[in-house]
Design a protein around this nucleic acid. Structure first.
Lengths: 231, 231
DNA sequence: CGCCGTCTTGACTCGCCTCAACCTCGGTGG
DNA sequence: CCACCGAGGTTGAGGCGAGTCAAGACGGCG
């Protein structure tokens, strides 16, 4: 196994207050692993044996209904912890995590969690902060689903993805991982048909440009207006 | 201020592993307070100065959209902690808490939070466990809102309330706090009209009995069927 | 007694889902 | 190099669930 570089972690909030030796110790216990697009990192209901830190790529967190429909709970970007079931005193994962594109992640066995939170200053606080942010995001989504029309929800969804993991390109901001109409419908609680119609309409109006599994937002401000500025 | 009895806390999960002296210390720092129906305990966005433990009654957690609509995020029952913003490293409350009926709650200043989690074994774990449960519940609601029909959502909502805080009465299980059609619509993302129509229909079929702000479920199993058994 | 919050019910409308057919790539194998 | 195939995407037609509009009944409280 390659020796991991300490600079990988030094800038990330959960580790930013630690010294070199501490980071070294953490890295030496970590298992790095690459995941190809579509690969499942862990599955809903599986025993929570490890917790993860995403170094590069995007992780898609999914739940499946009894009837087989999938809904996408959230996306996780580089630098974020995920699979932190131990933080919630859970012994199984509450959702499935798959690689939305090629990903690189570190992981540790859950037995190290208590050690990390106790020994490393700021680690616990920062972990719970991200948890709080996700909780807030989930509340926003509930609000959206309960009160907004499909068009607003899809607009808000695109905006969220572009802000959280947008890459600057010639004509605007591109969502930095492959994404289908189906995916978007699973995030917004609608059908791929409706998403397709909306994107077509927006493309005619010059708000977005899209190709197969790629979306570029060219006029974010107009999406903000469409979204009802609520999310 | 009356001296509070130690038996109040001894049975509750966050405190169950503590000895009498510890519980005494916790109680001596607590402020008990009664809240009448409809009273706001704390508001969304307000600085998080205290965290709470509900001893009796039901707390309704609410968010308001920019357009003034309200949505009910969850209900909190006796024995549960709430307003635990400090657990998520937040300095403002993410939602508004109002008393759904008459309530009695203890509260402590947030500066005691770190002390509680460090000094009292099991307190942190149990707090994070409830947090995890709420997060799971929120995920379920997102799934419901995204995939289920209104009828199923309302059925599931009634079931949830009856399970979490149902009181046995002559003909079935009664929801133990006052609740309007409007309230239910705010939980399920629909309108009071639709809820009213559903309840009328169910009453004709003998599944529920309802009066002004009171609902009794007489045939829970039939609601389970209607709910699609998904959550 | 009168008012207001709650609840009910009918009639109408329309957003979005469903069903269905077809197109367009990009990759693969002959 | 081309034919084929499947995943992803587009677009139209039609129907229905549930929201909106409207009118009123009921019951409790001041």
């Amino acid at each position: 196994m390659n020796k991991l570089d300490e600079s990988l972690l030094a800038k990330l909030p959960p580790f930013s207050r630690l010294d070199r030796a501490q980071i070294r110790a953490i890295l030496d216990q970590a298992s790095p692993k690459r995941y190809d697009e579509g690969v499942t990192v862990f599955g809903e209901g599986m025993p929570a044996e490890r917790f993860y830190l995403l170094l590069d790529g995007t992780i898609r967190v999914i739940r499946t209904t009894p009837t087989g429909e999938q809904i996408i709970a959230l996306h996780i970007g580089p630098g974020q912890l995920f699979g932190i079931a131990p933080a919630l005193a859970r012994d199984t994962y509450p959702a499935t995590a798959v690689a939305a594109g090629e990903c690189l992640a570190l992981s540790w066995p859950v037995r190290l969690w208590p050690e990390f939170t106790q020994s490393y200053e700021g680690f616990a606080t920062e972990s719970y902060r991200t948890l709080g942010e996700r909780l807030g995001e989930m509340q926003n989504r509930i609000t959206e689903l309960a009160t907004q029309q499909v068009e607003q929800r899809v607009a808000a969804c695109l905006l969220r993805m572009v802000t959280q993991s947008g890459r600057k390109v010639e004509n605007g901001l591109e969502i930095s991982f492959p994404i289908t109409r189906q995916n978007i419908s699973e995030m917004t609680g609608t059908t791929l048909h409706t998403v397709s119609r909306l994107l077509s309409a927006w493309e005619r109006e010059g708000i977005v440009e899209s190709a197969r599994r790629r979306i570029v937002v060219t006029a974010p401000h107009r999406l903000v207006i469409l979204s009802g500025a609520a999310g």
